[in-house]
Design a protein around this nucleic acid. Sequence first.
RNA 1: GUACCCAUAGCUCAGCUGGAUAGAGCAACGCCCUUCUAAGGCGUGGGUCCGGGGUUCGAAUCCCUGUGGGUACGCCA
Length: 570
Amino acid sequence: MKNKLVEILNKNIPSLDKQTIDDLIEVPLNSSMGDYAFPCFKLAKELKKSPVVIAKEIAEKIGTVDFIEKTECVNAYINFFVNKEQFVKQTIVPMIQQGEKYGIDKSKSKGNIIIDFSSPNIAKPFHIGHLRSTVIGNSLYRIFEALGYNCISINHLGDWGTQFGKLIVAYKNYSSKEAVEQKGIQELLRIYVMFHEEAEKDSTLEQQARDYFTKMEQGDEEALELWKWFKQISLKEFEYVYNLLDVEFDSFNGEAFYNDKMAPVIKELEDKNLIKVSDGAKIVELENMPPCLITKRDGSTLYATRDITAAKYRKQTYDFKKCIYVTALQQNLHFKQWFEVIKKMGYEWYKDLVHVPFGMVSIEAEDKSKPAQAIATRKGNVILLQDLLNQAIQKTKEIIEEKNPNLEDKDTVAMQVGIGAIIFDDMYNTIIKDIEFSWSKALNFDGETGPYVQYTHARACSVLRKSNIEEYDISLIDFDLITDEASITLVKQIGNFKSAINDAANKYEPSIIARYAVNVAQAFNKFYHDNAILVDDQKLKYARLSLVYCTTNILKNTLYLLGIGAPIKM
RNA sequence: GUACCCAUAGCUCAGCUGGAUAGAGCAACGCCCUUCUAAGGCGUGGGUCCGGGGUUCGAAUCCCUGUGGGUACGCCA
């Protein structure tokens, strides 16, 4: 409908092209100012007339058009009031025709996009700090897939480095096979912390750890066996969390995977004359930035070396359209640096490397007047993700017992809602913002929250269920029965679904989907409150139900895009 | 010291590539369940959009600058 308006305006304002007109058209917040509005300020200069006069002239030229009921000039704005029936029909018809698939293109025809996210360190517990990357990455995966891309999720595990030397030494000194098998990561963490405590007293420990890591790099069987074992134990525990969160990875190729692939890349950098030696380390000098370190004095590799190598490998393997890295903002410089190195190597695809940074998570101090505490695994100042999720599930169970004790399959619903609340909360704000974790806020399910959206969806499902209508026949819907303010607002909102997805993708910002979901839910709840749906008047009932049906699909899909389940009862 | 990020209601935040009276939620207070799920809806109060310049017909939005907070700056990741 907007397109048609653009056509008409374009005919009457030849000096502006369609794109410009399209950009200028606004949707007023208040419907008393029309459904679309065109501001004439920009035309004032070239026409050398007051914008108010221009607005009037254009409005007169346009005259009457079939789908526009009324045109009104307010100051320099031309406000268009569209024909409600046509507007509703054009919005709703494709949604009914495409059902659940509306707005979701699963063709995977637009090429490959890699999303590198979650990437926890092996042998350390999964805490709320890891949640953000996981949840944001997963959502971006689903968003880009909905736009027709083939997404590849890569968990770039932190599974290589001196820390594993430390772990081996710690294991040998302070633990046993039985203890690790029984207690898993908890035991690994315990001995890792112990190692650092002991290392302060015994300075030879650090050297022993480095030696063990060197052994690993040289392929020492005993060391590698232990490393593999630690990795396995960690992965098993991570799997548990990923299952709860409903996150899947196409690849777990972490840092260790690139161990034997870095030498050729270093050679390439040397061949291209990009390497300089500084204090024994190999570096690439950059403009307006500190240099990028490629190898240490002792010749061993660094973070950037592995990222550059991984990027090259991924380009060769997947020929990606984009490679997206979801990591904390603190790593900004690191990514800027090595992206620049890729550029200097002459690869045009450096443009397709995207860092999606997010803000820090800290933990609210018990005494709220004091500053929040940074997460510190070694100091024990952590909130384990498992604990958080379990608390959320528990809280949800209590609410269900109170509000809907006869609900069937309470456990499944409690899981979907409890976890949904946590996921939603993490992505409701612009991801760059820091989060100060607070139990009371995380477990609040009122207002703009995941459960609110889920609840709205369940409510809508309930109405559909009671209607006993399975399919909607467009030819039987009287669109002119949808006229009230609340209904029209709802139609406008659900009509924004596709642009919300595009917007979220362009900005790498899942919060746009989350906010959109709340907007739709609010519009639906208002509609639900104002309009009885299951009424005796069959025509009216059918028309309103068609709206409920579309809303249900939209809500379900917004939740899906965020990685959240949509229970049909709660 | 240099670079990057942030600053909007008591709190947490929206505000699209500048546009018509700056919006939600939480918290507070009041109202609405004999009607389709009250995890809901409605209402009230609450704002020098950090300060100062500039660009513009028009700035919370763009530019410059100052302040406050955060983060990062060669052998960790």
